[in-house]
Amino acid sequence: MQRQSNNFRPKFSDEECITIYLWGISQRGFEQKVICQYTKNHLLEWFPKLPRYQEFSRRLNLLAPAFQALSELWLDVVIRHSGNEGNYIVDSCPIILAKGSRSGHAKIAGELCDKSYNFSRKEWYYGVKLHAFVARHAGRLPTPLGLMISGAASHDLTAAKQIMEDQHPLDPGLLFADKACIDATWADLLKKDYKICILTPLKKRKEDTIHSGDAFSTFVSSVHQPIECFFNWLNHLTNIQTASIVCSTAGLLLHIFGRIATALATLIFNS
């Protein structure tokens, strides 16, 4: 957060700005202008020093690091209160700034974003990936244990290795992943260092006449499915995957971490 001096105290505080944005996202007001206008029309008694939209937006962008810090803090709270059954899942979802024909010309936040092909959506897009490492729970939403942002073109295996290295000490168990994470050397390392066995769908070979691995692959995919539920829940709550109105690096970081913080706060207060 930027300050002019140690004695600088704006009439409209950072705490108020953060509160309004988190509340607005949780109420599905996904655009800053919508959040600012609703606050002006209905909540001005609580926030009498609310500035004009342009200043509100500028302040939010400056506060992007604060939302990242809140996300890290609240993720630790979620982890501490989560039960661990020894079943983990890792995967990623896209955060899209531009797609289709526009993806080849987009340049916003170029130090963070790449162009890549999304096979599940069958489309090219420009943006980043949100990688999630979660604990699977029977009958309820998975608990995020680690979250990481990478360029859209980054390989899921590279990100999975990094996100695992950054984890707190983990209980032994099973890690379910997709075919992108097939790597014999990494699998051996997980067994040795973490006492975790990674399970992925089997790669089918052209010479196979009987697909003997189909039942196993179906099992792994079914156990892996809850992370898709997590991404769907996150996107429904915050619209995190749609970042087409972002116009700067600071705006992208605000978009990502403001929404992650909103989701984590929801998990904490509804647990």
Results as ranks from 00 to 15, higher is better:
3 R>G: 04
8 F>C: 03
17 C>R: 08
24 G>A: 12
24 G>N: 11
28 R>Q: 13
30 F>P: 00
35 I>T: 05
36 C>E: 07
36 C>N: 12
39 T>K: 00
42 H>P: 01
44 L>D: 00
44 L>C: 00
53 Y>L: 14
61 N>Y: 05
62 L>Q: 12
63 L>V: 07
64 A>R: 01
65 P>R: 05
71 S>C: 06
72 E>K: 04
73 L>D: 03
73 L>S: 07
74 W>A: 03
76 D>Y: 06
79 I>W: 09
83 G>R: 07
84 N>F: 13
96 I>W: 03
99 K>Y: 09
104 G>R: 03
105 H>W: 04
110 G>Y: 05
111 E>R: 11
119 F>W: 03
119 F>R: 09
124 W>S: 14
125 Y>Q: 03
127 G>E: 04
128 V>C: 14
128 V>N: 00
129 K>C: 11
129 K>T: 11
132 A>D: 06
134 V>L: 08
138 A>Y: 02
140 R>I: 09
141 L>I: 14
146 G>N: 13
146 G>W: 09
147 L>Q: 00
154 S>G: 02
159 A>P: 07
169 P>R: 03
170 L>H: 08
170 L>K: 02
170 L>R: 07
171 D>I: 10
173 G>F: 14
174 L>I: 14
178 D>K: 07
179 K>F: 01
180 A>N: 11
181 C>Q: 06
182 I>W: 02
185 T>G: 09
188 D>A: 15
188 D>F: 12
190 L>E: 13
191 K>C: 07
192 K>T: 08
192 K>V: 03
198 I>K: 03
199 L>S: 07
199 L>K: 08
200 T>L: 06
200 T>G: 04
201 P>H: 00
201 P>A: 05
202 L>V: 14
206 K>S: 13
211 H>P: 02
218 T>H: 05
220 V>K: 02
225 Q>T: 06
229 C>T: 10
230 F>P: 03
231 F>C: 08
232 N>V: 03
238 T>C: 12
240 I>Q: 09
244 S>L: 01
249 T>R: 14
250 A>G: 14
250 A>S: 15
254 L>K: 06
264 L>T: 06
268 I>G: 09
269 F>R: 03
